[in-house]
Design a protein around this nucleic acid. Structure first.
Lengths: 200, 200
DNA sequence: CTGGTTTTGGATATTCAAGTACAGAAAGGT
DNA sequence: ACCTTTCTGTACTTGAATATCCAAAACCAG
């Protein structure tokens, strides 16, 4: 019927997310995006309406990738609740370590976006996306915490709601602290200390 | 001898920091900065060499303002160690609440800058500034924690070094979580839970 | 007053990035 | 084989943002 695409949309979104993470939205030119993705401008603009749209799609892609990994851990019925939380922390730490080793320090795209009021104000979709992501992760965390309450590995001192927020807050904090050059071992000690209220 | 300046340098830095916080570095035009500060372009460029330099100065200004407030709390000999840490948390929470109430959500400039790899890569001075700030705050925190160890209000489970990093991490996390719209009461509960290893 | 020095205002280069236009290429159903 | 449809490459337009230039103004020492 028509000429097929010569590139993989998901691969472009991956490359775009990487560039945005490393250089930030405003300082990533479309030319850079093209180079990084190995695609010409018209293809980009043909597939994604604008730089803004591409960013939204890339963030969406990034978020859903991360979310999938986290869900696999947090819903793993084979693990007791507390272990799920610790595995999540380890996942985050290894993500940060990887990013740090890859040369440019590139923090988590979600935290970056949350800390860029402009991005959220400029595009309603970004705000909604981040909000949805937060809700989804919170709900996963609540599930794991409830499981921990039942199997006795998570202290009942905190309810699932506050517990989930605590985990979220500690993880965000870790992602910031990681940018200061802290090594994986230190990050893990801090995380365990921060989750003391849950882990007992 | 020469024509005197018609504006206050510190006021300009204040206004600039506010704009940078709300809109981010790249998306704050020099025109906006001029308007916000009530100063003409040539005055800006005459006083501060470039937009980059102005940003560095503004960040410096912001950091030293915050640091002064925090030092006053953390070195307050009248307070036991644990109270100092809690007061610091309350200070942070009230900063975030104020920012949130002022319309545009504008997160902490330090966390914002830490999460913008580009900013740090682009200007060595920003990286150094953030590093110095981290070190200074860490050292203040260690002092307060040591004081708490001595007066018995802070658990010796964590050493001063790890304790300081924990507080820093929790505070950064709070500053991110604040951007998701959490209210002051919730933030405080989370903070107390996160600092359990020190306070408990 | 006056000369020297710095600031100020406004206008103006200069650069650069986002997005568009359009012609031609690659399918593939009919 | 043809014709419709979508993709691709290049060149261009347009707009905006940083930075500079220069003349006029303000100040003060001598």
């Amino acid at each position: 019927m028509a000429r097929p695409r010569m590139f993989d949309e998901a691969a472009v979104l991956d490359a775009a997310a990487r560039e945005f993470r490393v250089h930030g939205f405003a300082e990533t030119s479309t030319e850079r995006l093209c180079e990084a993705a190995g695609v010409r401008r018209s293809s980009l603009y043909n597939t994604f309406r604008s730089k803004d749209d591409l960013f939204v799609r890339a963030l969406e892609h990034y978020v859903s990738t991360i979310a999938r990994l986290q869900a696999a851990i947090l819903e793993d019925e084979a693990l007791p609740g507390a272990e799920r939380l610790l595995s999540l922390v380890d996942l985050v730490i290894s993500e940060e370590r990887e990013a740090a080793e890859r040369g440019h320090a590139a923090g988590c795209m979600v935290v970056q976006s949350l800390m860029s009021p402009n991005l959220r104000a400029r595009d309603e979709r970004v705000a909604r996306l981040l909000d949805r992501d937060l809700r989804a992760r919170t709900s996963l965390l609540e599930g794991a915490i409830r499981a921990g309450h039942l199997d006795g590995t998570v202290s009942p001192a905190l309810g699932p709601g506050d517990g989930a927020m605590l985990v979220n807050t500690v993880i965000s904090g870790l992602r910031v602290t990681a940018q200061t050059g802290a090594d994986a071992g230190t990050l893990r000690r801090i995380a365990v200390a921060g989750l003391r209220s849950l882990l007992g």
